[in-house]
């Protein structure tokens, strides 16, 4: 029902559609936005404050939001106590490779699930979905046996193989592709374009928001994954940030001040990624012509 209007839409900006809200409603909206931002950020403020304390004072009550004697050295300690820089580099490497593979293979597969007819499509798709429904903890051991047979344990390749081909990515991309009007594809087919051509020249350019969304999800997942590296990586030179964070949880003590400092530092790259990518996922199909 909407496909016909899509080209007209591109000429208009999102702003014009909503009109000018009244001053009162603007104030209300800002008030609400700031209140929510406060709820969202409060824990991080506490984390920051805790990261500047001595270990013994982290959980002391009443909460001292501004430490009297800020321990900035905690931010040095996290780099020296453990090889945090190496962990950073490893995590970055894994995140980039896995995210790239995930984007490439799952959007490719999703095109077939969304727009092509073939035998066994629904069954295969159900198998993909079904796999999401099984907790990883249950098949962790058979998977480990497999990885050991392939001699991939304690290699980054093990995590790449595990996480690059997810059902989640396929499902997400399929949902986006499916809403691209068939008329566009049919027109391209009549013009003699192959399915691969359609995928590369029509689908991919149209699905930037979806690709950006998947990039962020995949990157955040890999960045924050703990159980995977826990089971597969043990050499210090191959460990990731999340394993590094757990190094501050020791047998008889937990250095929460260092955990907080390291967590905050490890947030930075992901936040940068989000800032860089958000313009893609908010400039969807409907508003790509914003500048025109």
């Amino acid at each position: 029902m909407t496909s016909l209007s899509r080209t007209d839409t591109n000429k208009r900006t999102a702003r014009s559609t909503l009109g000018r809200p009244s001053l009162l409603s603007t104030l209300l909206i800002y008030g609400l936005l700031i209140a929510i931002a406060f709820i969202m950020l409060l824990p991080f403020v506490w984390m920051f404050s805790a990261s500047l304390k001595l270990d013994k004072d982290v959980f002391r009550f009443p909460i001292e939001w501004i430490p009297k004697d800020p321990q900035w050295s905690n931010y040095e300690t996290i780099w020296t106590r453990i090889p945090f820089l190496t962990f950073f580099a490893n995590t970055l490497k894994l995140t980039v490779i896995i995210t790239f593979l995930q984007l490439a293979t799952s959007s490719f597969a999703a095109y077939a699930f969304a727009k092509l007819e073939f035998k066994g499509r629904d069954f295969l798709f159900l198998a993909y979905l079904g796999s999401i429904a099984i907790p990883w903890q249950v098949y962790m051991i058979p998977q480990f046996i497999l990885m050991r047979e392939l001699d991939l344990v304690d290699k980054h390749m093990s995590l790449i193989m595990l996480q690059a081909f997810t059902a989640f990515g396929v499902f997400l991309m399929r949902q986006f592709f499916i809403s691209v009007p068939n008329e566009i594809l049919d027109a391209a087919r009549i013009d003699g374009m192959s399915e691969y051509g359609i995928y590369f020249r029509i689908m991919l350019p149209l699905s930037k928001p979806a690709l950006a969304t998947l990039t962020i999800f995949s990157a955040v997942f890999v960045w924050n994954d703990f159980m995977g590296p826990l089971i597969y990586l043990y050499s210090e030179s191959r460990k990731t940030i999340q394993l590094g964070l757990r190094m501050f949880i020791q047998q008889y003590s937990t250095d929460y001040h260092l955990i907080m400092a390291a967590s905050l530092i490890s947030l930075i790259p992901v936040i940068i990624l989000f800032l860089a990518f958000q313009r893609f996922f908010v400039e969807g199909i409907g508003t790509t012509g914003i500048k025109g």
Binding site: A109, A127, Y139, E195
Partner: peptide, 28 residues
Amino acid sequence: KNLVAYSFILPNLLGFAIFTLVPIVFSL
């Protein structure tokens, strides 16, 4: 048509089947 469709799915399916589906079937 089928082959073209499978070629789209294959790169993902291959990794998915070996590293996820096989262990899942085993544990089920």
